[in-house]
């Protein structure tokens, strides 16, 4: 399958010596919904920056739809729409002007995007804000406008850097639906996030990035299967020490009265575990089955939480 983005041995060392990327390799096929998952400072924004032309690579290459982002930057950049993490706009102009300018910068005659601009304003609920300047928008509206504008030149690839950071639940769901639809219609979408839920819900594949390195790549389901952290969570009366002793041989973690038993197929072990604990004189107040999340995968691969 043709590759939308191909990253080879990409390194970035910032002036001042910070090594943001230690030689990463990534392939994103056309039409994929791809997630770059990692904590702040992992190298996500640097990877996006080099791909879009905002940051110069120290070494290595990035190709976008077969075009090198340095030597053939015009062709490469035409294929990309970027919704950056920060919401910074040219504050002198109305949304309508900014939409026209952005189309023009991409070489699309502003007159020919009038219809498309109106359609995007409509889809993102900004029809009545067209004549307004960005600073008069709320945070959520700014995010909507930013994503709408990144689509004005109808790029093959949409890159979103933390698109749902700081937006309310309603808008988050609206964006998720919209992005899923765009992807179904054929756009390649690459998003960076440190919201595990977002990656699990939307992405065909994710790469886990930490400390400037790709730790692993795969579909959320495959990653979860490969790092099974399923288990039972018992809430016990008291400190649970007796219960823990009764479960000798299981992989356990205990926090106060909460005992987590990591075991594959936990649903088949409920009776056995509860019996043992009860026989030891402990009282089970609550019991839940825990299914492995990307958060668990991240934790077991990197040794730390994604929010750390």
């Amino acid at each position: 399958m043709a590759l939308a983005v191909e990253i080879r041995d990409l390194r970035k060392r910032y002036r001042g010596g910070v090594e943001a990327l230690l030689g990463i390799n990534l392939e994103v096929p056309e039409g994929e919904f791809f997630g770059l998952l990692g904590p702040n400072g992992a190298g996500k924004t640097t990877t996006i920056g080099i791909t879009t032309g905002l940051v110069r690579p120290t070494s290595g290459t990035v190709q976008v739809m077969g075009h090198d982002v340095v030597t053939d930057f015009r062709a490469a950049r035409r294929c990309i729409g970027l919704a950056a993490q920060e919401l910074n706009f040219d504050w002198f102009f109305s949304l309508e002007d900014l939409m026209r300018f952005q189309a023009g910068y991409y070489g699309v005659p502003p007159a020919s995007v009038k219809e498309r601009a109106l359609q995007l304003f409509e889809e993102f609920g900004l029809m009545d804000k067209r004549a307004v300047k960005p600073r008069e928008l709320s945070g959520g509206m700014k995010r909507r406008f930013q994503i709408a504008r990144s689509l004005i030149h109808d790029p093959d690839i949409l890159i979103l850097d933390e698109p749902t950071a700081g937006v309310d639940v309603e808008l988050r769901h609206m964006l998720w639906d919209y992005l899923a639809r765009l992807n179904r219609e054929g756009k390649t979408i690459i998003l960076t996030t440190h919201y595990i839920e977002e990656a699990e819900l939307l992405c065909d594949r994710v790469a886990i990035i930490d400390g400037g390195q790709i730790i692993t790549t795969g579909s959320p389901a495959a990653l979860v299967a490969g790092q099974n952290r399923d288990g039972l969570v018992l809430e016990l009366a008291g400190d649970g020490a007796a219960a823990a002793a009764a479960l000798d041989g299981y992989e356990l973690t205990r926090e106060e009265g909460r005992l987590t038993v990591t075991v594959s197929r936990p649903e088949l072990q409920i009776a056995e575990i509860v019996n043992r604990v009860t026989a030891a004189g402990a009282t089970v107040q609550d019991l839940t089955i825990h299914r492995t999340t990307l958060e668990d995968v991240f934790m077991s691969l990197t040794g730390h939480s994604i929010d750390a």
Binding site: L54, F73, A75, R77, I80, N88, F89, Q102, Y105
Partner: peptide
């Protein structure tokens, strides 16, 4: 105000 990025990401040399 960091909106220079809007121009730097486009196919303008």
């Amino acid at each position: 105000l960091k909106f220079l990025d809007d121009i730097l990401i486009t196919p303008l040399g």
